[in-house]
């Protein structure tokens, strides 16, 4: 299921960045270099970014502009990366974050 917009009455939705692959929880997904990691995840249907520390509840996109931290994930071994304001690079390894992401 691809959630990318291909045709739009106002916008030109031709991807700007080069098509690359990122690895999300071991699975390869298509992404475009420079787009927010979160966009590539939502395009591929991944809605859960992390599970909370105490109640282990899922969280996903909430504010989309780097303020709420609900979309934090572990990226290339670094926990607490806000995926809505972090651009895709080819071959990035993304993991759903559990709690504070200490058990990388």
């Amino acid at each position: 299921m691809d959630h990318r917009i291909s045709e739009h009455v106002v916008l030109d939705c031709t991807p700007v960045g080069k098509e690359v692959e990122i690895i999300v929880d071991g699975q390869r997904i298509k992404a475009y270099e420079g787009e927010p990691i979160l966009s590539a995840l939502l395009a591929a249907g991944h809605r859960i970014s992390r599970y909370t520390v105490k109640n282990k509840e899922p969280r996903g996109l909430y504010c989309g502009i780097g303020q709420c931290t609900d979309c934090a994930m572990t990226v290339d071994g670094q926990p607490n990366v806000r995926t809505c304001v972090t651009p895709v690079r080819d071959g990035m390894i993304i993991k759903t974050q559990h709690g504070l992401g200490k058990e990388v």
């Binding site: 990318r4 739009h8 809605r47 970014s49 969280r59 996109l61 909430y62 504010c63 502009i65 609900d70």
Partner: peptide, 21 residues
């Protein structure tokens, strides 16, 4: 707080800037 609940502005950023629904 469930994934799928978001700010209207967040949804707007996703569609109009990132071109993803």
């Amino acid at each position: 707080t469930a994934p799928g609940v978001m700010g209207a502005g967040a949804a707007q950023t996703m569609i109009n800037v990132n071109h993803v629904r």
